[in-house]
């Protein structure tokens, strides 16, 4: 449970952070994460959507159908106020953890 939370937490964080740049659809989010992480992070596409729906049910993001630039119908997600708050919080705690781990790893 805890471990899943941890992983899920990171997936949620990536989604929220990506959406912080503006509304996007699922595919856009995977593309964004892959590009920005320079291929280091690859999202498992099948599990992205349950995560999106879960976040939507808990009111952190909001989804709506829109047209992409290629005039394709897709479901775009954007952050809610609640989501923005949650992002700020998680971001802070996450970078604390990351910094901590970094320090432990750098210790020789």
């Amino acid at each position: 449970m805890k471990r899943a939370d941890h992983l899920q937490g990171s997936l949620d964080l990536l989604i929220l952070k990506t959406l912080n740049n503006g509304a996007n659809h699922g595919f856009g989010i995977t593309l964004h994460v892959q590009t920005v992480s320079e291929g280091l992070l690859r999202m498992e596409e099948g599990s992205l959507y349950p995560a999106l729906h879960r976040l939507e049910r808990s009111g952190l993001i909001k989804g709506e159908w829109r047209k992409t630039e290629n005039a394709r119908r897709a479901r775009f997600y954007s952050l809610t106020a609640e989501g923005r708050r949650r992002l700020a919080m998680t971001e802070r705690s996450w970078s604390d953890v990351a910094r901590g781990i970094q320090k432990v790893l750098e210790f020789v």
């Binding site: 595919f27 593309l31 729906h53 290629n70 479901r75």
Partner: peptide, 17 residues
Amino acid sequence: AEWSEELQAHLEMRTEW
């Protein structure tokens, strides 16, 4: 149907990519 459409859209966009 909507969920399925959402997943379908993803697949198509990935195919295009």
